[in-house]
Design a protein around this nucleic acid. Structure first.
Length: 573
RNA sequence: CGGGAAGUGGCUCAGUCUGGUAGAGCACAGCGUUCGGGACGCUGGGGUCGGAGGUUCGAAUCCUCUCUUCCCGACCA
């Protein structure tokens, strides 16, 4: 492609709205433009990158035996009423009526539509397993779209759905997808981890998230330094260290005045102890009911774990004044002893001896509190957020906390949807059974942003070769020199003939501008035809990633460069 | 929805407090000189100052309402 013929509106200045690197660079590099909040136009360069990701995803999905189809984006409400999600899904589901006043929504995901298709078309166990996928635009009316392509309302997603005869078969389908996902992200050239995850509103029993590691990620992950274990902190299991051989003797419970001491640290200091000897009591609203959650004073409640432990649909912290209104418990002085609401304790709390806790009376705490003797929680379990000081639940090695961007998520769905929508097939024994389902998403447009988030420098994007919009950019630095133009043009044609994706910068621009643009848009290899060619008959090759520059005979260039790129791509397969 | 910030030429912003003929840089067009890391000079085009109402002789500037965007939070495959 000739640069002069392509709409690549790069800018020197950064639009004020862009906070993070990928957003800033996608705008500056002329990949995307914002239409309005959460809605972006893909310009030619942006579309090429998107198509690169889509192509790799498609290849690997097909290789894994999935079949591509295309489902409608507009979906009738009655399907969503059948699954129950017309009620359950919040305002994120964009609903509207057609001219006949019938209810519709824009598809934020496609379980209903695909399940409807399956119950019509998949009648026999002989047709299973089946894995159907599409690459399509999704719409979710996000409360707060942000960070450019990272969190849009409209975005491109690959979603796949598997249908199996049994749970074991579904597990096999899940495994096949898990491997396919590993291949996809490896081929894309991204540093990523598959982590154990919470399954969220889509529901289901088991799930993994695929996370691209980047400091600007919205999720926090724990990664084991010793084994393969990795998990989202929402889910990461905390293992208790072995109990100390000698246990402190239980003392009597004593009420002490602690005026104005609402923070754990202050209470601990005031009573001459440390936060790890204090029981922290937090009140949450779980499906409308207040619940007290206990963790050690130096720990944090992980609300997703709390939600799962309670089996609740929704859990949110209660503001102090709400707590007082609903329960007459004084914020800052709450404790488990004789508490009037449901009590959930982190496993670690149960091993505490002679702890400090609020007395449920303003200005007072209790010392010598002993779990089991002085209070009994309704539920006990793993409730707190992991820390970098915890050990791996699998192998006991040290853990690292890091940030990640969720680019893929796979779920074992079970029979939730097939039962709700009565989707069945006839098994080999003649009985009707519900499909055991799985669903598998990849945020295709988000991958582009995540890749940039992970691969950029102060000059611009550094695209991994597999998803770069072009593999090579040829800079003609002698647009006024006929011979140079001929040479550059010939090289452009030779590289294309060798099967490479080439952008040819034939613009009448000064060299500086061409270098800057080439760096900004992140094309992995840059070939310069200019002064060095005019003087020595050699061209220069530079790697965007490493900055390494070499020169080579003009005659050898096309062959050497194409061989190098082919090798590099092959190494990732 | 709660908290914060901002809407002035295509972009980045100044001007607003203290009302008095709408500005700069970048970008764009023309001419000339330049030409290996975003050149320079001259000339030029382009703005109902987000919108509506009000105060005033006079409003980008003051008041009221409203819309939009961005950031933090809640929420979220």
């Amino acid at each position: 492609m000739r640069y002069s013929q392509m709409l690549i509106p790069t800018t020197r200045e950064t639009p004020a709205e862009a906070e993070i690197a990928s957003h800033r660079l996608l705008l500056r590099g002329g990949f995307i433009r914002k239409l309005t909040s959460g809605l972006y136009t893909f310009l030619p360069l942006g579309l090429l990158a998107l198509q690169k990701v889509a192509a790799i995803v498609r290849e690997e999905m097909n290789r894994a035996g999935a079949q591509e189809l295309l489902l409608p984006m507009v979906q009738p409400a009655d399907l969503w009423q059948e699954s129950g999600r017309w009620q359950k899904y919040g305002p994120e589901l964009l609903r509207f009526k057609d001219r006949h006043q019938r209810d519709y929504c824009l598809g934020p995901t496609h379980e209903e539509v695909i399940t409807d298709l399956a119950r019509r078309e998949l009648r026999s166990y002989r047709q299973l397993p089946a894995n159907l996928y599409q690459i399509q635009t999704k719409f979710r009316d996000e409360i707060r779209p942000r960070f450019g392509l990272m969190r849009c309302r409209e975005f491109v997603m690959k979603d796949a759905y598997s249908f199996d005869v049994s749970d074991e078969a579904a597990s096999k389908s899940y495994e096949i997808m898990r491997e396919a996902y590993h291949r996809i992200f490896r081929r894309l050239g991204l540093e990523f981890r598959a982590v154990e995850a919470d399954s969220g509103t889509i529901g289901g029993s088991f799930s993994h998230e695929f996370m691209v590691l980047a400091d600007t990620g919205e999720d926090t992950l724990v990664i084991c330094n010793g084994c393969d274990y990795a998990a989202n902190v929402e889910k990461a299991r905390v293992v208790l260290p072995p109990e100390p051989a000698e246990r402190e003797e239980a003392a009597a419970m004593v009420k002490v005045a602690t005026p104005g001491m609402k923070k754990v640290e202050r209470v601990a200091e005031f009573l001459g102890t440390t936060p790890d000897r204090v029981i922290k009591t937090m009140v949450y609203l779980a499906d409308g009911e207040p619940v007290a959650a206990l963790v050690r004073g130096d720990r944090e409640v992980q609300s997703v774990k709390l939600k799962n432990l309670l089996g609740a649909d929704e859990v949110e912290p209660m503001p102090d004044d709400e707590i007082w209104k609903r329960t007459r418990l004084p914020a800052g002085y709450m404790g488990p002893v004789d508490i009037t609401i449901r009590l959930v304790a982190d496993q670690e709390v149960m091993g505490m001896v002679n702890a400090v806790a609020g007395a449920n009376e303003k200005g007072y705490h209790l010392t010598g509190v002993n779990p089991g003797r002085d209070f009994r929680p309704d539920v006990t379990g793993d409730l707190r957020q992991v820390t970098a000081d915890d050990r791996c639940p699998e192998c006991g090695a040290a853990l690292t906390l890091t940030r990640g961007i969720e680019v893929g998520h796979i779920f074992k769905l079970g029979t939730g949807y097939s039962e709700a929508m009565n989707a069945t097939f006839q098994d080999s024994d003649g009985t009707e059974k519900h499909f055991v389902m799985g669903c598998y998403g990849i945020g295709v447009s988000r991958v582009v942003a995540a890749a940039i988030e992970q691969n950029h420098d102060e000059h611009g994007i550094i695209f991994p070769l597999p998803l770069a919009p072009f593999q090579v950019i040829v800079l003609n630095l002698g647009v006024n020199n006929e011979a140079t133009c001929r040479a550059a043009e010939q090289l452009y044609n030779d590289l294309r003939a060798a099967g490479l994706e080439v952008l040819y910068d034939d613009r009448d621009e000064r060299p500086g501008a061409k270098f800057k643009d080439a760096d900004l848009i992140g094309i992995p290899y840059r070939v310069t035809v200019g002064r060095t060619w005019e003087k020595e008959g050699r061209i220069e090759l530079r790697s965007r990633a490493t900055g390494e520059t070499s020169t080579m005979e003009y005659a050898d260039a096309a062959g050497r460069i194409s061989a190098m790129i082919r090798d590099e791509l092959a190494a990732r397969q």
